[in-house]
């Protein structure tokens, strides 16, 4: 079928370039959000995270946390320093700094390594 039969409204559309760019920017934003959307967690999954956090805290284990930040997935690895139930914040000591992570931004959590054994100074 000739395009004219199916495109009469596309051909006659009157949009300012600035409006069109705004619409396209929204589409791109939605695409990103769709790609990096937050999953809906099952309660058991949350309990699993909780257990892993407790274990990592108690044993000073290295964890890898993936979080959503500004529509982008970011992976952080380090030793778990603190998990505050009241504020919902998790503190992870990476090689450079202590990173503060909101529990609601976490989309995956895993223990990746045991801590390096502390070398005791020989007398």
């Amino acid at each position: 079928m000739n395009r004219k039969f199916s495109d009469q409204f596309l051909c006659s559309r009157m949009m300012l370039p600035e409006h069109r760019e705004g619409v396209n920017r929204r589409i791109r934003k939605m695409d990103r959000q769709g790609k990096y959307s937050r999953p809906l967690w099952d309660e058991q999954q949350w309990e699993q995270f909780q257990l892993l956090l407790e274990k990592a805290l108690a044993q000073h284990l290295v964890v890898e946390i993936t979080r959503v930040k500004e529509d982008v997935h970011e992976s952080i690895s380090g030793t778990l320093k603190k998990a505050d139930n009241l504020t919902g914040l998790i503190f992870v000591q990476t090689e450079e700094e202590i990173v503060k992570i909101k529990a609601e931004d976490v989309i995956s959590l895993g223990i990746i390594d045991k801590p390096e054994p502390k070398t005791e100074k020989a007398d």
């Binding site: 409204f9 559309r13 009157m14 949009m15 300012l16 600035e18 409006h19 705004g22 619409v23 929204r26």
Partner: peptide
């Protein structure tokens, strides 16, 4: 105030998208 009109038009697209994902602006 053309930028305001564009912003309101985009806000309307957002409202329409609560009802359907197939929304196509035809003009402002």
């Amino acid at each position: 105030h053309m930028q305001d009109y564009i912003n309101v038009s985009l806000q309307m697209t957002e409202i329409f998208e609560r009802f359907t994902d197939r929304v196509a602006p035809y003009s402002i």
